[in-house]
């Protein structure tokens, strides 16, 4: 780990000014991802700007029954918040399915949005990786990729985004709030992650030096929601595939539906094709299966992650089926 300095600003604007004035600096919140990456040399900041003391640690219910979540709220606090558990069940479930209790106590909402991939090539500085070292190549394509992306990847990078929380936020149409040197910005989560294209090192549309200050979530749809995650052990593993979904059924037909996928793409993946295919259709397993197949029609699995196509298809069908039963359809 390279030596670094540590500063603790007292206000958001001070933090942003510090960050803008020092190109080699990084914001530090829970440190559960950044510090690990520093230990293995993937991140080598010369200054850490601690943003945990800036009053960004509150969860508020908005007047319209939506949520505003401070960027420094811990994953643990968010998961057990009564409003989250009651109205945004998939968000609570997604968070609790991630990492371990100790990590969730430290990890923050802002940091979770910016988690780096768990691709093994990214994590080893002796190996090529376009995300870490642009232009050096992507050995995962011909190498180890059994838990890599099947959707939205490019020949430059096939890594997945590891977050569970963001999969749920994607389904709930959240908006990311940030502060830049020139003032606050709001970015809908659907625009927050960039397509991989030929720039896998540029992961988000967050302006330079911006500090995420919070996330807003609009009122929950009048539907039950859930998150289901499949992984290689019962706890403390990243998703091989996950689904966050909400479903409203009226008179036996799909009235509203939200589906997002984890472990599937370079970023949490909103299954818009499946959603569109389901609207107005009977809330039956047959419809769910057709919609899931439509979503995964564009999947491009590699030799060792082909199992994910069937896995994600079956997960979508299973989760929607459970929600339909819950809705009494």
């Amino acid at each position: 780990m390279k030596e670094f300095t540590y500063v603790r600003p007292a206000a958001v604007i001070e933090a942003v000014t510090l960050r803008a004035g020092r190109p080699g600096s990084r914001y530090l919140a829970g440190g559960t991802n950044l510090v690990d990456l520093m230990k293995i040399g993937v991140e080598q900041p010369d200054e850490l700007i601690d943003v945990t003391g800036l009053g960004m640690d509150r969860i508020e219910t908005t007047l319209d029954a939506g949520l505003r979540i401070g960027a420094a709220v811990s994953n643990s606090d968010l998961a057990v918040h009564p409003a989250v558990r009651q109205d945004f069940a998939a968000l609570s479930q997604a968070i609790l399915s991630g990492a371990s209790g100790q990590l969730r106590n430290m990890a923050t909402v802002g940091g979770n949005l910016l988690q780096r991939t768990r691709c093994a090539y990214f994590a080893d500085i002796s190996l090529p990786c376009n995300k870490r070292n642009p232009g050096s190549g992507c050995p995962a394509l011909a190498g180890e990729h059994h838990n890599h992306a099947i959707l939205g990847w490019s020949e430059h990078c096939v890594a997945t985004h590891p977050s569970d929380m963001v999969v749920a936020l994607m389904a709930y149409d959240a908006t990311v709030e940030a502060h830049t040197p020139s003032g606050p910005v709001r970015i809908p989560i659907s625009d927050f992650y960039r397509p991989v294209a030929d720039t896998p090192h540029l992961e988000t549309t967050l302006p330079e030096h911006a500090l995420i200050t919070g996330v807003t979530v609009p009122p929950a749809p009048p539907a039950s929601s859930r998150y289901r995650k499949v992984r290689e052990r019962a706890s403390f593993a990243f998703a091989t595939g996950s689904v966050a979904a909400a479903l409203t059924v009226r008179a036996g037909a799909v009235h509203a539906v939200r589906i997002a996928l984890g472990g599937a793409a370079s970023h949490p993946w909103r299954a818009s094709t499946a959603e569109a295919a389901l609207l107005g259709e009977p809330a039956t397993e047959d419809s769910f299966a057709k919609a899931a197949a439509a979503e995964l029609a564009e999947a491009r699995p590699l030799p060792h992650n082909q199992y994910k196509v069937a896995l994600l298809r079956d997960l979508i069908v299973a989760v929607l089926g459970d929600l339909a039963v819950e809705a009494g359809a």
Binding site: R118, Y121, D124, G143, E144, E232, R233, S235, F236, A237
Partner: peptide
């Protein structure tokens, strides 16, 4: 490629 406790899976308590 998985010479660490995140990548090399052993049984978790769960």
């Amino acid at each position: 490629l998985n010479a660490n406790l995140a990548g090399y899976h052993y049984a978790a308590n769960a």
